[in-house]
């Protein structure tokens, strides 16, 4: 992955972005839910010639995304997907946001309605540091992965890799590919214990 003039060099800072960028085929239609400042979309548009769209709730992020040339609009993920026709996109991305949505199952279902494939990344609540923190402190875990106090965390649904796989199985969401990361390194052995971040390609 090369650094380009769109200021997307910081894409390298997010290992899940790197995986997502690898998964996405050139020339496809991509919707990024919770697109932030539009870094990933700008990179995909410039380097993979995708048709990029983004949804973001924070006005200041939307502003930066649009200033970057990304067609982003200010809106809420939980209700924003309803307007799109079926299979409007090749990929719908939800990176590090599933745990912040009010109705995760509904969001996943909608993602697979408007997209042929869904790409979901999230921090793994089953990681050993989280387990240890809880075990030894007896308090809501505060770790590198989950750095917030319980009362000001944006995360409202905590899930592990196993939880996500379980949900997909129960709802018949076919998992096409899965990636587990510890920092930037891929984890293959005991992922639910050792993986910090999971990236799933579903659909």
């Amino acid at each position: 992955m090369t650094v380009n003039s769109n200021g997307t060099s910081s894409l390298l800072m997010r290992p899940d972005f790197k995986i997502i960028a690898e998964i996405i085929q050139p020339g496809t239609k991509v919707l990024d839910l919770g697109c932030g400042e539009g870094l990933l979309l700008a990179w995909l548009a410039a380097n993979k010639k995708v048709l990029a769209r983004g949804v973001e709730i924070e006005a200041s992020n939307v502003r930066k995304a649009i200033a970057r040339g990304v067609s982003a609009y200010q809106g809420d993920i939980d209700e924003g997907l309803a307007d799109y026709p079926d299979k409007a996109f090749d990929y719908v991305i939800l990176s590090q946001t599933l745990q912040e949505t009010r109705a995760p199952l509904q969001v996943l279902t909608e993602m697979l309605r408007v997209g042929r494939k869904a790409i979901i990344s999230f921090p793994n609540f089953g990681h050993w540091t989280v387990r240890m923190a809880m075990l030894f402190s007896g308090q809501a875990p505060k770790t590198d992965l989950f750095p917030y106090d319980w009362y000001d965390s944006p995360n409202i649904h905590f899930l592990s890799i196993n939880d996500f796989e379980d949900l997909c199985r129960k709802n018949g969401f076919p998992i096409e590919r899965r990636y587990f990361l510890s920092g930037e390194k891929k984890v293959n052995w005991l992922p639910n214990l050792r993986g910090q971040t999971a990236v799933f390609l579903v659909g």
């Binding site: 502003r63 649009i66 609009y73 200010q74 809106g75 307007d83």
Partner: peptide, 18 residues
């Protein structure tokens, strides 16, 4: 306007400026 453009999968950027 934005919602309708989304419905037809149009290319729309939108911001509600403070």
């Amino acid at each position: 306007i934005v919602r309708v453009l989304r419905r037809i999968n149009g290319d729309v950027a939108y911001c509600d400026l403070q």
